[in-house]
């Protein structure tokens, strides 16, 4: 069976973009996201880009936001 994604291994750091809907303020994002992450807000829609982390990092971020009631709209590797 070929690797599912030859470019990204489980421990690799990649740059992610995450779009979500939620009532979380930008300061909160800044305390939990890796340095260099960027934020954009349009109403309740947030775009978090340039998130540089590995699988454990992005999984923890997505699950944490989900637990806070945020709705994840999109997650992609840039």
């Amino acid at each position: 069976m070929p690797p599912a994604h030859p470019e990204t291994k489980i421990g690799d750091q990649r740059t992610y973009r995450l779009r979500l809907v939620g009532s979380v303020d930008e300061d909160f994002f800044r305390t939990i996201c890796p340095a260099g992450s960027a934020f954009q807000q349009e109403g309740e829609l947030f775009t978090l880009s340039n998130i540089q982390t590995d699988q454990s990092g992005i999984l923890g971020l997505v699950r944490g936001l989900h637990n806070l009631g945020c709705i994840i709209i999109e997650l992609s590797i840039i």
Binding site: T31, I32, P34, A35, T53, G60, L61, G64
Partner: peptide, 15 residues
């Protein structure tokens, strides 16, 4: 120890 990053102020702790 964790399989995924906890929702802690890691950015602040790093900084």
């Amino acid at each position: 120890t964790t399989r995924e990053d906890p929702l802690l102020p890691l950015a602040r702790l790093r900084a």
